[in-house]
Amino acid sequence: MLVITLKYFGMLVEQTHTHTEKIELAANKISMNDLELQILTKYPKLSTLTYNIALNQKIVAKEALISNGDEIAFLPPFAGG
């Protein structure tokens, strides 16, 4: 079983209505791609928005593997400055 923390920022929060949540997954290993599909099932409107995904504070590709305790953040386009 995997326990992971999900974080959402900016305009994405208007779809998820939460900044952060902990979820449990039955699998021992899951790719970012598979996780994203699960999240999109939960929040279908996210699919209309642009975002990158960070694994433990680093932006990663969809092939990245997620481990127990990881923090995954969904990041909309940056607007600093």
């Binding site: 305009m11 940056f78 600093g80």
Partner: peptide, 14 residues
Amino acid sequence: LVETIKAETPIFGK
């Protein structure tokens, strides 16, 4: 610095 900050730091503005 300014260009890299704008492109790479996860800051969001409403």
